[in-house]
Design a protein around this nucleic acid. Structure first.
Lengths: 338, 338
DNA sequence: CTGAAAGCGCTTACAG
DNA sequence: CTGAAAGCGCTTACAG
């Protein structure tokens, strides 16, 4: 049933029905109530494509994932938060996957030109990220999850990666650890660079030398955590403490520590950054894992808020947030072995 | 730039341009080439909403996740596969999240009435799943990931859960295990029921008694795996072998076994169902995990195929697949202890 | 507070 | 092989 039929059916003009359904103020309350009730009863819903064509709004936002590889546990938690928030305002999420950087940029051009979305979410930012300038040039509104450098101001939400790793490193230094290793993410990304910077700065602040052999990086997988930890432990002078970039890396690191016959929290202290996966809690590990803690789902919800405000016309430079990161001490960290 | 402007710009009618861009055959090859080239150069893209309104097709398929909880690692791998496939045909994926069963059904009604999607993917099926009848009644095409009972035939893709757990149970029985436990998923779901049925049937076939205390179920999380395994090990006569429904549960089970001072693959054999998470491989665990193996990403890709075929008019009853599940023996299974 | 009508940007049956 | 024109189902400026 379309608007014409429905309006005829209840004896009103299309105009009035349209206004009633969209919540416009100039409609008499009784009329609105009658329209809404009839729509419910007769099952009328405005055709979304027609609505979009008429208003020029897409009613959807886009998010592009590069490679299947980036659609991992972080993505799903983030998406859960984002979609929970946007759903309340009836905004759809359009998911695209691409293989390469070029394809990703092509995807934004396509989304912009075909008016398929009103805005996009950019994530997994590089230190100088070409996507930002591209989107600004295309005039496609966007929110960045993460941070980057750019000429023009833009809207973003990031966590305080520097503060998180600073707190972790400081804690370990305070416990007397002098050989502290870092299992970082891909150093091309801003968050990994921020973490690396915090690690270096805090070591220096405590008079600890930086040993490049103790700064590893790679994907946030069990395997990478395992491999890097094994390499650390094979050093002539292995670390007594490790900071892992994710719960996944931490799992692998714990395995490597155990296999070496060492005890987590006694022989080797371990801190992980916890993005909060409902299926894998640091409290449940043995020993419970000391973490820097920042729910990525909450970030998704907040970015949903921000994108709605952006679409209502708020200026990007007023939509910039950096979230502090909690530091939670549990059993996996202890004094440096004598 | 819209069609009118673009067509005027290159001196052709809207009709011809539209046909050239959509790949209709009645356009002269040179004309098509000229149109495509000009579109590329001038950056013209058809407005997607207008296209959809004119054709009546939404160009998108929908997928609804109930509760943030169901948007976990399985979902993200599945979505990765699905979106990779659909992207090739320019079909968008619309993600919705809802909290309850009622909200999910309301979401389908809304999607159907507003013609927001051409089809939906139904997943996490219950044994008698009300969503199927609802969608059939609404006339909204759909593919089921999983299986269910219904009056009318429908399109689905499922893995052979029965065969998988049968193989696992048989293998353990063949190794002499007589007390075999199962860490299953929520028994309301078809896959869990199929696995349970296979477990029971295979025990019976080997003359092994079923002990209800050895059949646990819950979410596919590390925590549930841990808790159930600890309960098993606390029994007067604990199991010597366990089958875990997911890699997540298996991680928790391994922890519980280790904490009890037992060795995986020696004191307690462990088999997990592996949906293949790129960040968590059974080969990398110690000992490497014996698994039933079926990449959920591949299922997502295949369901993408199937939904495209469904939209091209293939009958649902011709789109039904059950995939066999590989069984891969690694180090976590061994002879029953004497 | 309500309505007639133009317009959003496409596709496609019909005519040539 | 190409084009003029109707139609898809809404929204909204304008008039009353």
């Amino acid at each position: 049933m379309n608007l014409k039929e429905f309006a005829a059916r209840i004896g009103l003009s299309q105009t009035t029905v349209s206004r009633a359904m969209s919540g416009y103020p100039e409609v008499k309350p009784e009329t609105r109530a009658r329209v809404l009730e009839a729509a419910e009863k007769l099952g009328y819903r405005p055709n979304i494509s027609a609505q979009r064509l008429a208003t020029g709004r897409a009613g959807a936002i886009g998010i592009v994932f590069q490679g299947g590889g980036r659609f991992g546990p972080h993505s799903s938690e983030f998406m859960g938060g984002l979609s929970t928030r946007l759903q309340k305002d009836g905004i759809d999420i359009l998911v695209s996957t691409v293989e390469t950087q070029d394809e990703e940029e092509a995807a934004y051009r396509r989304l912009a030109a075909s008016k398929r979305v009103d805005a996009v979410i950019v994530h997994t930012t590089a230190c100088t990220d070409t996507r930002i300038a591209l989107l600004q040039a295309q005039g496609l509104p966007f929110i960045v999850h993460g941070r980057s450098e750019a000429q023009e101001p833009f809207a973003f939400l990031d966590i305080d990666n520097f503060g998180a790793i600073e707190a972790a490193t400081r804690h370990l230094a305070g416990l007397g650890h002098r050989r502290i290793a870092l299992i970082n993410g891909d150093i091309a990304h801003t968050y990994a660079r921020d973490r690396d910077a915090a690690y270096r700065a805090t070591l220096a602040a405590h008079g600890l030398a930086l040993d490049p052999a103790l700064a590893g990086h790679g994907e946030f997988t069990d395997e990478t955590g395992f491999r890097l930890m094994q390499a650390f432990l094979a050093l002539p002078s292995p670390p007594t403490a490790v900071i892992a970039g994710s719960m996944m890396s931490a799992l692998g690191a714990m395995r490597a520590i155990r296999i070496a016959g060492l005890a987590v929290g006694v022989d080797v202290s371990l801190i992980a950054h916890d993005d909060v996966f409902p299926y894998l809690s640091p409290d449940n590990l043995v020993p419970a894992l000391t973490t820097t803690h920042s729910p990525i789902r909450a970030a998704g919800e907040r970015i949903g808020d921000m994108v709605l405000r952006l679409l209502q016309g708020e200026a990007p430079e007023t939509l910039q947030e950096i979230w502090p990161v909690d530091f939670i001490v549990r059993g996996s960290t202890g004094p440096a072995p004598a």
